[in-house]
Design a protein around this nucleic acid. Structure first.
Lengths: 140, 140
DNA sequence: TATTTATTGATAATGATTCCTATTAACAAT
DNA sequence: ATTGTTAATAGGAATCATTATCAATAAATA
């Protein structure tokens, strides 16, 4: 999704477009870091020093509600990602790095479970934990 | 896994077997609640009032390290489960209820990802979020 | 340009988890 | 069975991510 589209859809729903919100969205759209709220704050602050941590939290809440960002919990901390399509998050147990990986079979599984279980399924959240390419040499 | 086996394997590794540890393990082995540390504490306390929350946390840490319990994060809170085989956790977005569901295809996916990615995969963690049978009528 | 009110920033409050340490008790050795 | 060693416990303090509060600010509209 493009920044322009996101801005328009937010504006359409009556939300105000502030420099802080643009900076946060722009950063998330262009990074693969899966940053925490605190990381978002320090990165955005470099260009927009007037951005507070409260605002970062509130903006991330808004973007999550609108399903414009995905949130996963790692080590008791929320990590954010503009990739909102169904995918698997690879989480490094050593350095905390996160990578996205696509897997077509997820859709099938999701459909199967939706049938099999008595839950009304809204979304999947799939993680695999291990050691990333940089860390794995130390741990095998 | 049976309580007896767990006790033996812990003792073999030099860990002491205390009434608190037995009570915690016994509860986890016999519930489907996926309780939080606090819930474990209050349930165990009914039978063993001398059990402290610190001890619950430390016992859960130990059991997690020994891969005798599974831990997942829901709403910023850890939830525990004696089911340690690969499975999917169904999480209710309304009441926080968690159910386990088996899905053979997970093994295939895990194998595929292990090949496809450059991560050294240790374990998977699969969740599907939605509304449980009790809650879903209010939300559709 | 003025008006309305959502948003922001700063700080306090919350709550799950971890840390700390004197006391207790499991268990091995006697 | 008794004792000694030391892991485990209790309970309170500390930590830290997140949420709540609210006066000041600035988008958006007329």
């Amino acid at each position: 999704m493009q920044l322009e589209q996101i801005v328009m859809s937010l504006r359409d729903e009556g939300h105000r477009i502030t420099p802080q919100r643009i900076a946060i969205m722009d950063y998330l759209l262009h990074t693969k870091d899966h940053p925490s709220a605190d990381q978002v704050h320090s990165v955005v602050r470099k260009r927009y020093p007037m951005t507070s941590l409260s605002t970062v939290y509130k903006t991330l809440d808004l973007l999550r509600e609108k399903k414009l960002v995905n949130e996963i919990e790692v080590w008791g901390e929320a990590r954010f990602d503009a990739q909102v399509d169904e995918h698997i998050n690879l989480v490094c147990l050593n350095c905390g790095n996160i990578e996205d990986i696509d897997e077509k079979a997820l859709k099938n599984i999701q459909a199967k479970i939706a049938k099999k279980s008595d839950y009304l399924i809204i979304k999947g959240s799939f993680e695999m934990h291990g050691y990333c390419s940089k860390c794995k040499t130390e741990f095998q």
